[in-house]
Design a protein around this nucleic acid. Structure first.
Lengths: 338, 338
DNA sequence: CCTGTGGATGCATACGTATGCACAGGCGCT
DNA sequence: AGCGCCTGTGCATACGTATGCATCCACAGG
């Protein structure tokens, strides 16, 4: 009783293997009584179709590869959850890979390709041109999520980071902040680069410049430590822009509990992502919400878009972020007129 | 240039397909010069072995199924991360499924079995006896993580919940708490049942009984709302035991921000899991830490244990939890003597 | 020179399923 | 009655890889 195959069902039902296959596929040509008989015998002897064999023959694995980086940043579980749910709804299976800190996407991609995945979604970081080519050669579409790439010809979906960051900064300047500091994530990520760029552009427009620039590694502890470094200045910043919410929460706690500062009276702290805990009363974090669901939808649309197979254009979609005003920063809520 | 197979490599290198297969497998019998030639041609024409075909033939898919429930409870991303990392290290691939709220594990298991997974890890909930039998028939080992089952013959790994909850309660009683309430998760989960049981046993031992019993659905919002219901009593509880940390954090914020109570002076709040945010200064949650890494290690050991294939015993392993004392509850730190 | 030996490679087949084609039987039409 | 057609089923093959067995060649020993 090792493996029960369609041949076993065929033997038990007194038909051929091909008839079993057709009956299970709902082929019209099989008479309904035969179909019934086959289905019930399949049920009774506990037959489970071998999807691997099916995939081998049809050349369609129904599997999508998902490469995640840091699952400990609360933004990504939400993303992961969304992707898995959306893919399951579309009848796709998810092969999940994790890139450990310090690891490279390139290390896991070969494994994905071996499983004949129909597409790959990468949320961890960009990928090398070598691997981009390997995917191209296999005709395996790739979509970068929350990451942009400038060199490689790969599709990506992200938030309009520069714009969102620019607008956020404008609002902070409007509210009379004039000493800005940034707590960055990792220097090699597009989110970091773009959000910093928007911030600096807005500052420059008003003749301002950053008074502090620290890295927080996209962790709570990193944000906490970075904030301590920033706030020990004699003339400390009065606005800290954090490239992600986890770091902003660390910074907030460092300011309040370690240095006894009041937020937002003594300084404003803002983040990006709008993770669930940003709305908790302990934090009330002003932040830029990423439109996760829409981004996921667009990612899958790009991934499965049939016309991408012909014109292999590297499309980058940028969805607008939404400023969520809470009480961690001195920003007036937008007038309804605007 | 659709699919590059080992035959293409064979043709390009002027050998047979079987020689290619053997060369790539590192077969000793292939002369090293032939091997070199094959490897380099494979490289140059961009050959990727088809793992599906390989799996079909060897009857070993190298895939492990992972069924997750609520990824929005921060405990589970940590678990997921740990499992994926551990499995990748063992050379296994992870096929991830999600059970949407209100869904059943039974709905996704058939898909897993179709992909010939070598084992299934379930963190969402127990599974029906029908599905347990189906897995047994397929000789597919199953391990429940953080869930126990009493009826079915399935292995499981959890924390020693009753014991941990009992000890925690004893410590709270020692510290003169006498009006206990519980905020539960979902009534049908073993974690809820067992933690409540330990709590009630300890209370009974001191002639006490619960003064409040609410459900919080293992969400922050649920914990928040449940705490409001509990704390509007005239004689409100002075200790709230929450079955998971997320709910405890909700309860804490409800007490502080909504009702103006002081924690732990006015009441103690404790949780379970020790999620990362439990240690943040805003919360400082006293909680029972689950030994996640050890639990994962034991789960995989059970899953791949060769002798389980002969004696099909349903082993339930219970690892001790560790009480982490912080400032959300009035508990003296254990004397070093003890 | 013939045979035996061993090393290197090719041939054929199997894994479990889907599908084009052939085939059998029944029925209606001329 | 004979012909064609339709319906329902079986036969054979293909997917890409791994592997038992046969084969071939070279070389050594008799």
């Amino acid at each position: 009783m090792s493996k029960i195959t369609s041949r076993d069902v065929a033997r038990a039902a007194g038909v051929s293997q091909s008839t079993v296959s057709r009956a299970l596929a709902g082929d019209e040509r099989i008479s309904s009584e035969t179909r019934e008989r086959i289905l019930s015998t399949a049920q009774s002897i506990g037959y489970t179709p071998n999807e691997l064999a099916r995939s081998l023959l049809s050349n369609k694995s129904n599997i999508v590869g998902l490469v995640m980086g840091d699952l400990l940043n609360p933004f990504y579980p939400t993303v992961l959850n969304g992707f898995v749910a959306a893919l399951q709804k579309r009848g796709k299976r998810v092969l999940l890979f994790t890139v450990p800190p310090g690891g490279e996407v390139d290390d896991v991609l070969p494994f994905l390709l071996q499983y004949q995945v129909e597409g790959v979604i990468i949320t961890s970081s960009a990928l090398s041109s070598k691997m981009a080519n390997a995917c191209e050669r296999n005709k395996t579409p790739v979509v970068l999520f929350n990451r942009a790439t400038y060199k490689e010809a790969v599709c990506s979906v992200c938030c309009a980071n520069v714009q969102a960051s620019f607008d956020l900064t404008e609002r902070l300047i409007e509210a009379e902040h004039d000493r800005f500091a940034i707590i960055g994530g990792r220097a090699d990520t597009s989110t970091h680069i773009e959000r910093k760029q928007g911030l600096e552009e807005a500052l420059a427009r008003h003749g301002l410049a950053l008074v502090g620039d620290e890295m927080g590694d996209n962790t709570y502890e990193g944000g906490f430590a970075a904030a301590l470094r920033l706030l020990r200045f004699r003339r400390r910043p009065n606005a800290i822009v954090c490239v992600s919410d986890v770091m902003a929460m660390g910074a907030l706690d460092a300011a309040r509990f370690e240095l006894g500062l009041r937020v937002p009276q003594d300084l404003s702290i803002v983040g990006f992502d709008d993770i669930p805990s940003a709305s908790w009363p302990s934090y009330q974090l002003t932040t830029v919400r990423q439109p996760i669901d829409a981004m996921i939808e667009r990612s899958l649309a790009l991934l499965f878009d049939p016309e991408r197979k012909t014109k292999r254009k590297a499309i980058t979609e940028r969805l607008p972020g939404e400023l969520i005003v809470r009480s961690s920063a001195l920003i007036a809520a937008k007038h309804p007129a605007e």
